[in-house]
Structure formats: C-alpha cells, structure tokens
C-alpha cells in the first residue's frame, strides 16, 4: 500500500461515523387511524415514500386512508383523461396491497397547483382530519428545500397548515353543524428527498422488516402505467448480455416481469441503504413532529408530569 493510500485509509478510519438516528416506535395510537396525504398516486412507494411505515401501522391494527390531492393527469403515456383513470385505479390496487382501507381523491389538477388557493386545498384536508381524527398523518415535509415538483411543495404546505389549524374551533366553524369537532393531530411523520439539501433534517428512522419492504416493493411497480415497461426490461437484459453478464433470477421471466423484479430490488436497496446507515437491516427516514411540538417550552414538563387518569 502506498503511503498516501495508507494515510487516506487511516484518516477515513479516524473520521467519526455519521450519527445513527433514533428508531421511532409506532405511537401509542389512542385513535388508531392514520392519513397518508400526497399529491400523487405513487408518492407512497418510492425511495422516499412511506409505504414501510404504512404497512407497520396496518400490522399494528391501524386503519389508513390515502388522500390523493391531484388527478395525476400528467403522469403516464396516454394523455389526460386516460391517465387520470388508470392512475387512480392503480393507486387503489397499490395502497390496498399496503393495507390501506380507501383512497380519497381530491382531483385537483396535476402540476397546476401553484395557481390554486392554498386555503381551498387546506379546507378539504381540515374537513377530512376532523372526520377521521387520525392519530398520525404522514406526508411530504412542509419545510423541505429544493423539491422541484410543484405539487409536492403545494400539498406539503397545505398539510402543514391543515394539521395546525384543524384544532381551532374558529377555523371552519361550519363543521360543527356536521358534528365534526376540532382535532389536533398528535403525530406527524414527514418525508422528503433527504439528499435535497439542508432543509431536510430527518430525526428518526422507522425500522422495517422484510415483509414491510416486500409489500412496499410490490406497491412500487403496481403503478404499471408509470413504473413498468417491457422495453426497459428488454434493454437492461440486452445491456447485461453485451457485457457477458446475466442475472439468474430474471431467467424465464418476460421483459415486463423482469422490469418489475428489478424495480422491487431498487426498493430493497433503498430500504437497505437507510438501514445500513442506521444500524438496522431496513428502514425509512422521517422528520417526526410529536405530540407537544407546538410548545417547545412545555414539552419536557408535559412529558414528565402528565399522568394516567
């Protein structure tokens, strides 16, 4: 080994490892209902989606609802009306695979959300929060930086405002006419591309089992309209062949089945990477805002002094 290589190795060995994030438990769940609020049909299951958390909650007896804010008309090869319908259908199949009870689609126009008054989107979310009274809401991070997708930014802000305001009786007082009382969401698990700059500051990981990852991996490619293509499977196999390589697991599969398998592996890799960095096998990262987040000066006191009735 050359001297500079030795120095490099020693220097790397001396560097402190990145601190592992604490593992978040599933919250006690006095109301075992959760909402997943996302702009798009497929935001729950990708590298930075929450499908692992969703399956953990379902396994723990929670009931989940997926609120799709946009109509997904831009996503897919078929054009406006066809893609709307296919993407909603596949969202139902993918979230059902995760154990979600229902998909509620708000149908705002995909990728045109900047022109929409945030108060209108927020109003719908406040109504649904008061209806379902979720013990947990998961969505994109309202304070995230550098997210290029305008729907992600808009919906994250609307979610941030909705969970804040749903607890005030003077916000949409008309809801009382329906018997819907104000409600404060105690647990928020926000996610975003954590490689997108300083704004994303995850503070917990959720440890996943192989079963959690398996369901997430399937829900990823179930969005066939945007995630599967026979030509990609064919091209990947051709590339491997050119280099004299083959993947035995892909033998006997059609091109589209091969692509689905590779998509699943990418989900395993993403979960494994988060797990490896945090001392577990598989994981997802989140910014978790807990029960007493709005009162930083009271948080310690409340946690220490609240007692069972």
């Amino acid at each position: 080994m050359k001297v500079f290589e030795l120095i490099t190795v020693l220097a790397l060995a001396a560097m402190p490892a990145a601190a592992e994030l604490p593992i978040a438990d599933i919250p006690p769940g006095h109301t075992k209902t959760f909402l997943v609020i996302h702009p798009h049909h497929d935001d729950h299951s990708w590298d930075y989606g929450q499908a692992g958390l969703i399956t953990k909650l379902v396994d723990a007896g929670w009931t989940g609802y997926y609120i799709r804010v946009s109509n997904d008309e831009k996503d897919g090869p078929h054009g406006y009306p066809h893609d709307d319908m296919v993407n909603l259908f596949e969202a139902r199949e993918a979230t059902e695979n995760l154990g979600i009870t229902d998909v509620i689609s708000l149908n705002w126009r995909n990728d045109y959300m900047d022109a929409m008054p945030i108060n209108e989107i927020r109003a719908q979310l406040i109504l649904l929060i008061r209806k379902f009274r979720p013990g947990l809401v998961t969505s994109y991070l309202p304070w995230g930086h550098y997210d290029r997708n305008p729907d992600h930014r808009k919906v994250a802000t609307a979610v941030g405002e909705a969970v804040w305001l749903a607890s005030f009786a003077n916000v949409h007082p008309e809801h009382r006419k329906l018997g819907l009382r104000p409600y404060r969401v105690p647990n928020k698990f926000y996610s975003q591309r954590f490689d997108y700059g300083k704004g994303y500051e995850p503070n917990v990981i959720v440890e996943l089992s192989e079963s959690n990852v398996r369901r997430k991996a399937r829900s990823y490619w179930v969005h066939r309209n945007v995630r599967l293509s026979g030509s990609t499977g064919r091209r990947m196999r051709a590339l491997l062949k050119e280099q004299g390589l083959e993947i035995p697991e892909l033998e006997g599969l059609s091109d589209i089945e091969a692509h689905a398998r590779m998509q699943e592996w990418s989900m395993y890799d993403a979960a494994r990477k988060v797990g490896r960095e945090n001392g577990v096998e598989y994981g997802e990262m989140f910014s978790r805002l807990g029960e007493w987040h709005p009162w930083p000066g009271l948080k310690d006191y409340l946690e220490s002094n609240a007692v069972d009735q």
């Binding site: 006690p28 006095h30 607890s167 404060r184 105690p186 029960e291 009162w295 009271l298 409340l302 002094n305 609240a306 007692v307 069972d308 009735q309």
Partner: peptide, 19 residues
C-alpha cells in the same frame, strides 16, 4: 386556549396534568 387544548388532548388519551 393553550391550557384547554393541552387538557383536551390529555383527557382524550386518558391522561391528566395535575396543574
């Protein structure tokens, strides 16, 4: 309002804050 909302949250989860 803050005190009531904290109390409400605690009571809805079978807890109380003596204060």
């Amino acid at each position: 309002s803050t005190a009531m909302r904290i109390k409400d949250r605690l009571e809805s989860t079978d807890r109380r804050l003596p204060l």
